[in-house]
């Protein structure tokens, strides 16, 4: 209870601030409308109107909630108006990108741990790769894959998420695979274990706690990557595309509801990885 209460209070405060901000953000339009119609408005009228505009600059929380209810619960899941449908599209690319990024990250980590040359050649470039803003590359990846004849957008979006997701996995896996001490490696040697056995029975199990910590960062990064992949490229399906279309048609409610949906998706994904982490670590006997 002691841990939940402060969070709830802060969330309530954010919600209250949001409501307070709605009034000055939307009041301009209300006042302009009233002047045109020749009405006199009291303060209460203005506040009431700012809360329920069709195209507000800043929608009130209850409007976003209503839009979410409409597009999540009241629309059929297969419909193109359903956020569940768009969330599913985004989720697919996110998971593909996550799988690809994790595989590349682990693969590179293994080669870096086992080969001095790979370590010295790859590591600096892996760091530099993360200072390159991926969004600069995103539109091009999509156009190039389209000219190469790759259908659909799942593959390019997955590549972009993999690009953001591989790095945290790489860094922690290098740390994790190197975490067994000299004593433990010596013990493997006294068992006359070969390289493969040392890897499967010592290094890999020892790296699992590190792996899961990075997977939590990685899955969030993969989702960011997918949405970045959808935003600048004229996609029509996915949460990023909803944001884009909402922007083009001047429909802020659509943007806000897609943003909230993306936040929920991120929360759900991170929670799933956290649960898997505690299950796996318990199974493997890491004290928790």
């Amino acid at each position: 209870m002691n841990r939940v209460l402060p969070i709830l209070v802060v969330l309530a405060a954010i919600l209250a601030l949001w409501y307070v901000a709605v009034v000055p953000m939307n009041a301009g339009w209300t006042i302009a409308q009233a002047e045109r119609a020749g009405h006199e408005l009291t303060f209460v009228d203005i506040v009431a109107d700012t809360m329920n505009q069709d195209r507000p600059r800043l929608p009130a929380p209850h409007q976003v909630a209503a839009e979410l209810k409409k597009t999540v619960l009241d629309t059929k899941v297969t419909s193109k108006r359903s956020l569940v449908f768009h969330g599913w599209i985004t989720l697919q690319s996110t998971l593909w990108g996550f799988a690809l990024g994790t595989t590349v990250g682990i693969g590179m980590a293994v080669s870096i741990v086992y080969s001095r040359t790979a370590n010295m050649s790859l590591m600096p470039w892996a760091i530099i790769s993360q200072t390159i803003p991926i969004v600069a590359i995103a539109p091009m990846i999509i156009v190039v894959l389209a000219t190469l004849g790759v259908e659909g957008r799942t593959v390019p979006k997955a590549i972009i998420s993999a690009y953001l997701c591989f790095f945290p996995v790489l860094v922690s896996m290098v740390k994790g695979l190197r975490s067994p001490g000299a004593m433990q490696i010596d013990l493997m040697k006294t068992y006359s274990a070969n390289a493969g056995q040392t890897f499967w029975k010592l290094r890999l199990p020892a790296s699992v706690p590190y792996l899961f910590t990075s997977l939590k960062v990685g899955i969030a990064a993969a989702l960011v990557g997918t949405i970045v992949g959808e935003l600048p490229t004229g996609a029509i399906q996915g949460l990023g595309a909803r944001i884009l279309i909402g922007d083009q048609f001047g429909n802020p409610l659509m943007i806000w509801s897609a943003l909230i949906a993306a936040a929920c998706l991120a929360g759900a994904l991170v929670t799933i990885v956290t649960v898997l982490q505690s299950l796996a670590l318990q199974r493997m006997g890491y004290a928790r």
């Binding site: 402060p6 935003l231 944001i243 993306a262 991170v270």
Partner: peptide, 25 residues
């Protein structure tokens, strides 16, 4: 301490969100 306990988890969560989506707004 109260604010710290309230804001830290929320801040950590928000830091993992796709905030780029707010760009059009």
């Amino acid at each position: 301490t109260f604010l710290r306990h309230g804001l830290l988890p929320i801040g950590g969560f928000v830091a993992a969100l796709p905030i780029v989506g707010t760009a059009p707004i």
